[in-house]
């Protein structure tokens, strides 16, 4: 799997992401700069990592969505390339129109830095093939704007096309309002594009890939990608 991580000013999770990708695939991802206008040849995966690109000015991800590299990422996605956006990366994908909806300020107005539990909703995608629908895993989250919103028609379409990838849930897998601390509509933590090759999610599975840090529960996501894209 040939992966590349895009760096924007203010991003801070790129090294965690690089470790997770290398652990899963055995290959070190390339690092790209936001001013680049082209992606390297033969790329299988582009990752927009977490952080606070451009200081979250105007809206989270709004500035990054207009940066030069996004044109190349948009073309890559249009050609059927796989794109993963985590946390700020998810916000950027929404602002760029590569995923539907938007991320609002957390309903409590609090920055949430803690573990959450996610239930896998969409199985068999390049990101989730090593999980089954209904599987629950733990992942850290760290965000002030993770309150997913889309209008009712968009939400119904997402659900109808099985494009909700993950939902916030209790450790037992129950999808309840209490398990959804940021207030995201219908407990949505991650969504897929129409061709299921672009995924955005708020929590950080890349921070649960090493037993030294207490958990490897995020690993299936990266192994799924490595297994899917090794053949590509």
């Amino acid at each position: 799997m040939n992966a590349a991580i895009v760096l924007f000013p203010g991003i801070n999770r790129e090294r965690d992401m690089a470790l997770a990708l290398e652990r899963a695939s055995g290959r070190r991802p390339a690092m790209l700069w936001h001013r680049d206008t082209a992606l390297p040849e033969g790329l299988d995966l582009v990752v927009l990592p977490g952080g606070f690109s451009y200081g979250d000015y105007l809206r989270c991800g709004a500035m990054a969505a207009q940066s030069p590299i996004l044109g190349a990422v948009r073309e890559f996605a249009a050609r059927g390339g796989h794109v993963l956006g985590v946390c700020n990366g998810f916000q950027i994908l929404c602002e760029a129109g590569l995923l539907p909806g938007a991320l609002l300020r957390n309903a409590t107005l609090r920055f949430l830095s803690m573990d959450c539990h996610l239930r896998v909703e969409a199985e068999g995608t390049a990101f989730t093939r090593l999980w089954k629908r209904g599987d629950v895993f733990r992942a850290p989250m760290a965000h002030g704007d993770g309150n997913y919103f889309a209008d009712a028609d968009t939400l119904d379409r997402l659900e109808g096309e099985n494009r909700v990838a993950f939902r916030y849930c209790t450790p037992e897998g129950a999808v309840t309002p209490e398990a959804c601390l940021n207030g995201a509509i219908r407990n949505i933590a991650g969504v897929l594009s129409e061709n299921r090759r672009v995924l955005g999610l708020m929590p950080h599975p890349e921070n649960h890939v090493d037993p030294l840090l207490g958990s490897e529960e995020g690993m299936p996501l990266f192994r799924s990608l490595a297994e899917t894209l090794v053949a590509a």
Binding site: A62, Q66, C94, E95, P100, A102, F149, A150, D151
Partner: peptide, 8 residues
């Protein structure tokens, strides 16, 4: 195109 996010 930029100042407002028409979704929200």
């Amino acid at each position: 195109r930029l100042l407002a996010n028409m979704v929200i």
